[in-house]
Design a protein around this nucleic acid. Structure first.
Lengths: 231, 231
DNA sequence: TGTACATCAGTGAACGCGCGTTCACTGATGTAC
DNA sequence: TGTACATCAGTGAACGCGCGTTCACTGATGTAC
């Protein structure tokens, strides 16, 4: 009945969607749809909701509401809630890989320092992006739900593998541990510390030292055990 | 209307509840209530549901249904779903502590062997009791939701701390690392491996070696880095 | 030992709510001519 | 350059469902006397 109000509301919505769309166009050159880049907006909304309430605490309808569209709209882009979650995880693995790569930085200034930087980058990601991290590792998604997700996870792990390869090459041929094993060891250390202590989101356990210090000392002792020179 | 059927159904229910009650009386000497030990039955039901669908995948009504009672019954024993989940976690920490203690076994036959046994016990628990493990570490419950839960978690961690103390005593006074740090390191290794690879429930990542071998080698290298003699 | 009574674990019906999902539709966009 | 048309992202109303929670109740148990 109050036509003016309804019209204003619609106008406001259109305006918001369009201005968002313009900023997206500027940021990422992904194609824009005729009412805005809803696909990406839903992923952002899901991230926000996961950050607030955990990976199990958001619904398809929630994401639609946050993105300002009707509850039926997400079905144009995602088969179901799990498909949306998988896309959040896939995108997260991509950023994760980038951060780890930056940490490794081709093994510079030297492989041991770079290896520690990878560890720091791991924790920094878990702390800065708890929503991505939860979607990637704690959402209960089967890791090979789809080939893209699987590949994204593998690519991120490959950075650890590359770093281990670079480190192993420092040792004389007779005393080289399997790089695959080393990378799994480091992954488990970093993941263990990140999920027990180093999360940016909810109430975690208190510690006598920072998560970063804990991981650094753990890696230091581990590398010493493998016969690497200190520093 | 079909009185006979209804009567039979009620009789069957009563019979089941009573026979369950009797077996509980035999197993645990916890007090029995006048229609059965519903409190414990709800915890069991929650464990079963968590094992099937994850810690976020069960509802209060689900648990009641599994226990064969009306949806209002659980309110006699738990304030809400979170309180039930917290009790599952608390009970889990108790069993966890017992398994870790058995692994440590007072440091016998020798502290290094016993330390490795603690690691094995950790993974064995995560594998055998994925529901407890999930409630304890992956349910999103704040660790100090209530004093009992907090205390149960602390007691379990204290076993790791005791083991680290026992190990540290092997080293000469000048080269002893802080036992607190050591126990946090081992916890993070074991938890990392357990949550990434060593779970009995759902589809996890494949590995070139078993979770147990991975943890054992990791601890071995770590201990070597601290200057412990091998074997 | 028997009876009356208080207790309280569990009932079952009811409610409002938000979810997932479907459907025919609308209307802005891009394109063919 | 202008017009007609096809496309398809998003609408909004509708549905059935199961959840959390409440309520007055029931009836088995334990106990006081």
């Amino acid at each position: 009945m109050p036509h003016a109000v309804v019209t204003l509301a619609i106008a406001a919505r259109r305006f918001n969607v369009n201005s968002l769309n313009m900023s997206w166009k500027r940021r990422a050159r992904e194609g824009a749809y005729h009412h805005g880049n809803l696909r990406e907006a839903l992923i952002q909304a899901a991230r926000e909701l996961i950050k607030e309430k955990g990976p199990a605490g958001f619904t398809f309808a929630d994401a639609a509401r946050s993105a300002g569209v009707s509850p039926a709209a997400p079905y144009r882009h995602f088969r179901d809630r799990e498909a949306l979650l998988a896309d959040v995880a896939r995108e997260g693995f991509g950023r994760f890989e980038a951060m780890l790569s930056t940490g490794w930085n081709g093994g510079k200034p030297d492989p041991i320092t770079a290896f520690h930087n990878v560890g720091r980058a791991y924790l920094a990601f878990a702390r800065a992006e708890p929503a991505y991290y939860a979607a990637m590792f704690e959402s209960g998604l089967p890791p090979d739900l789809n080939a893209d997700l699987r590949a994204a996870g593998d690519k991120a792990f490959a950075v650890l593998r590359t770093a281990a390869d670079g480190l192993v090459a420092l040792l004389p041929a007779g005393r080289r541990p399997p790089a695959m094993m080393m990378s799994l060891h480091v992954w488990s250390m970093a993941h263990g510390i990140a999920s027990l202590f180093g999360r940016g989101d909810s109430g975690r356990r208190a510690l006598p030292m920072s998560a970063e210090e804990l991981l650094e000392s753990e890696m230091l002792i581990y590398l010493q055990g493998l016969g690497f020179p200190q520093k």
